[in-house]
Amino acid sequence: MGQDVHFITVAAPDLDAARRFYDALGWRATLDVPAEIVFYRSAPGQLLGFFQAEKFARDQGARAEHLSVSGLTLSQNLSSRAEVIALVDRMVAAGGTVRKAPQQGEFGGVFHAHVADPNGLVWEVAHNPAWSVGPDGSVALG
C-alpha cells in the first residue's frame, strides 16, 4: 500500500449544514450530489467528503446511530496567532462550535484552537512557528 490518503470521508447527519459551513469558509465543492455527498479539495491530491450519514452507514453495513467522529482532528497551520483568531471567528460565524478557544498550547510551542463543524468534525486551527507549509502544500516540521 502506498503512503497516500486521497479521500477522507465523514458521515454527516446534517449534510446541508456541512455544505453551508464549508461554503461560508470559501471552500468550493469539487463534486456535490444533493442529499448524498459533497467533496471538497482539502490538500493537493486529497478530497474531504461529507456523506449523508444514513447512506454512509448503508455503504459500510453499519447502523447510522452508531456513527460519530471521535478521536480525530483535522489541522491547519497558519502564519500567525492573529490568523488563528480570525479563522476561529469565521468558523463560528459559519456555524462551528468552539471546543477550545485560541490559546497557547500545552505541547510543542503551538498557539491553537479547536472548532467543531456542524457535524462534529473537529478542526485544530494552529500557528506553530517551528512548522511551515510551502506554496505547494508540503509541510516542514521543524
Rank of each mutant, 00 (worst) to 15 (best):
residue 2 G to E: 15
residue 3 Q to I: 11
residue 3 Q to H: 14
residue 4 D to C: 13
residue 6 H to N: 15
residue 7 F to C: 12
residue 7 F to W: 15
residue 8 I to Q: 11
residue 9 T to C: 13
residue 11 A to T: 11
residue 12 A to T: 06
residue 15 L to A: 08
residue 15 L to K: 08
residue 15 L to R: 09
residue 16 D to G: 11
residue 17 A to L: 04
residue 17 A to F: 03
residue 18 A to E: 10
residue 19 R to Q: 12
residue 19 R to D: 05
residue 20 R to W: 03
residue 20 R to Q: 14
residue 20 R to Y: 02
residue 20 R to H: 13
residue 21 F to P: 05
residue 22 Y to N: 06
residue 23 D to T: 15
residue 23 D to F: 04
residue 25 L to A: 04
residue 25 L to F: 01
residue 28 R to K: 14
residue 28 R to Q: 13
residue 29 A to C: 08
residue 29 A to Y: 01
residue 29 A to S: 14
residue 30 T to S: 14
residue 32 D to M: 00
residue 35 A to Y: 00
residue 35 A to T: 12
residue 35 A to I: 00
residue 36 E to Q: 12
residue 36 E to D: 09
residue 36 E to I: 03
residue 38 V to K: 03
residue 39 F to H: 11
residue 40 Y to L: 03
residue 40 Y to I: 03
residue 41 R to N: 11
residue 42 S to Q: 07
residue 43 A to K: 02
residue 44 P to H: 03
residue 47 L to D: 15
residue 48 L to K: 07
residue 49 G to C: 04
residue 49 G to I: 04
residue 50 F to Y: 08
residue 55 K to N: 14
residue 55 K to V: 12
residue 57 A to N: 06
residue 59 D to G: 15
residue 59 D to S: 15
residue 60 Q to E: 11
residue 61 G to S: 08
residue 61 G to Y: 02
residue 62 A to E: 13
residue 62 A to P: 04
residue 63 R to C: 07
residue 63 R to L: 10
residue 63 R to P: 01
residue 64 A to P: 07
residue 65 E to C: 07
residue 66 H to S: 14
residue 69 V to H: 05
residue 71 G to D: 10
residue 71 G to C: 05
residue 72 L to G: 03
residue 72 L to I: 11
residue 72 L to M: 12
residue 73 T to R: 10
residue 73 T to Y: 03
residue 74 L to P: 09
residue 74 L to E: 09
residue 76 Q to P: 05
residue 77 N to E: 07
residue 78 L to F: 09
residue 79 S to I: 12
residue 81 R to F: 10
residue 81 R to W: 09
residue 82 A to V: 10
residue 82 A to C: 06
residue 85 I to S: 13
residue 86 A to H: 02
residue 89 D to R: 13
residue 89 D to L: 01
residue 90 R to I: 10
residue 93 A to R: 12
residue 93 A to D: 11
residue 93 A to L: 06
residue 94 A to N: 01
residue 94 A to Q: 00
residue 95 G to R: 01
residue 95 G to A: 02
residue 95 G to W: 00
residue 96 G to K: 01
residue 97 T to F: 00
residue 100 K to Y: 02
residue 103 Q to H: 12
residue 104 Q to T: 14
residue 104 Q to I: 06
residue 104 Q to F: 00
residue 105 G to A: 10
residue 105 G to C: 07
residue 105 G to Y: 01
residue 106 E to M: 10
residue 106 E to C: 00
residue 106 E to H: 09
residue 108 G to S: 12
residue 109 G to D: 03
residue 110 V to T: 14
residue 111 F to K: 01
residue 112 H to K: 14
residue 112 H to M: 14
residue 114 H to K: 14
residue 114 H to Y: 15
residue 115 V to H: 05
residue 115 V to A: 09
residue 117 D to I: 05
residue 118 P to V: 07
residue 118 P to I: 05
residue 119 N to D: 11
residue 120 G to C: 11
residue 121 L to G: 02
residue 122 V to W: 01
residue 123 W to F: 13
residue 124 E to M: 07
residue 125 V to F: 01
residue 126 A to S: 15
residue 126 A to C: 13
residue 126 A to Y: 02
residue 127 H to F: 05
residue 127 H to V: 00
residue 128 N to I: 03
residue 129 P to A: 08
residue 129 P to R: 06
residue 129 P to K: 06
residue 131 W to C: 11
residue 131 W to S: 10
residue 132 S to I: 00
residue 132 S to P: 02
residue 134 G to Q: 08
residue 138 S to L: 06
residue 138 S to K: 12
residue 138 S to V: 08
residue 140 A to C: 04
residue 141 L to V: 10
residue 142 G to W: 00
